[in-house]
């Protein structure tokens, strides 16, 4: 069942994975602008398999007038028993002057599988960044599995661009893979590059965290990591 409105149009597209349904989010108009409130909800019933991607990057832009206020973008995902969700949208670009608060909340059943990628690009090419706060909260079987928040750009608390946080990089990404099979054998934590790390969470899940100079380099790191994680015999399983 697909239901869409406003600037986000949902299209059923052909899946390259057998047994997977695929939905592509298409931008029907420019959004989010300052003051917009966007939401996406996906409920993956028990046993279902779904890939959600998007047709293009999302660009956060300033709103009309000086009093537009920040935009919000809330994503709520629920994945049932034995179900799988591959949530692989294109990048989120924080354009100069924009202010966006993005939150992603995921509720996983104990036997659910999740692949989730999120990438934030600080500014369009050659542009300084807007202000962006992103929060990713994942709960599995009702218990917290991952809870991360990052804020950057003008007006963000100091030090976000320093050595303890972004260190001057303009592309930030995370790839989360939650797989009940990781209870048995889980890829080992390691550095994937000088600015990318794969870490095991306190549960059957791994998180790839990467910073890079630009969107292209970031995607290359995350793509390579995903390919490795989905071919376990080569992923250094311990």
């Amino acid at each position: 069942m697909l239901e869409s409105g406003g600037p986000l149009a949902l299209r059923r597209t052909r899946s390259i994975l057998a047994g997977h349904a695929r939905v592509t989010v298409v931008g029907a108009m420019t959004a989010p602008l300052g003051g917009d409130r966007l939401a996406v909800e996906a409920d993956i019933a028990d046993g279902a398999r779904l890939t959600v991607d998007s047709a293009a990057a999302t660009v956060a832009l300033p709103g009309a007038g000086p009093h537009a206020g920040p935009a919000t973008y809330d994503v709520r995902l629920t994945v049932g028993e034995g179900a799988e969700l591959r949530w692989l949208p294109e990048q989120l670009v924080s354009a100069y002057g924009s202010e966006l608060r993005m939150s992603t909340r995921v509720e996983l059943a104990p036997s659910a599988r999740l692949v989730l990628r999120e990438e934030q690009i600080l500014g369009r090419h050659g542009e300084t960044t807007g202000t962006l706060t992103t929060r990713l909260t994942v709960r599995r079987a009702g218990r917290p599995l991952l809870d991360q928040q990052l804020t950057y750009g003008p007006g963000a608390p100091g030090g976000w661009d320093g050595a303890a946080v972004l260190g001057g990089h303009r592309a930030v990404g995370q790839l989360l893979v939650v797989d009940p099979g990781f209870e048995e054998t889980c890829p080992r934590s390691r550095m994937l590059s000088p600015t990318a790390a794969l870490t095991r969470l306190a549960g059957p899940a791994v998180l790839v965290t990467a910073v890079a100079a630009d969107a292209r380099l970031l995607r290359a790191v995350l793509d390579e990591a995903l390919e490795e994680l989905e071919a376990p015999e080569e992923a250094g399983v311990r």
Partner: peptide
């Protein structure tokens, strides 16, 4: 005390995805 969230029963035969926008 945090209550484990109940997942909706598997009655729904399909997957639902909704995208909304609410411009004040």
């Amino acid at each position: 005390a945090s209550s484990p969230r109940n997942h909706p029963p598997g009655a729904a035969p399909c997957t639902s995805t909704t995208a909304t926008k609410d411009r004040p």
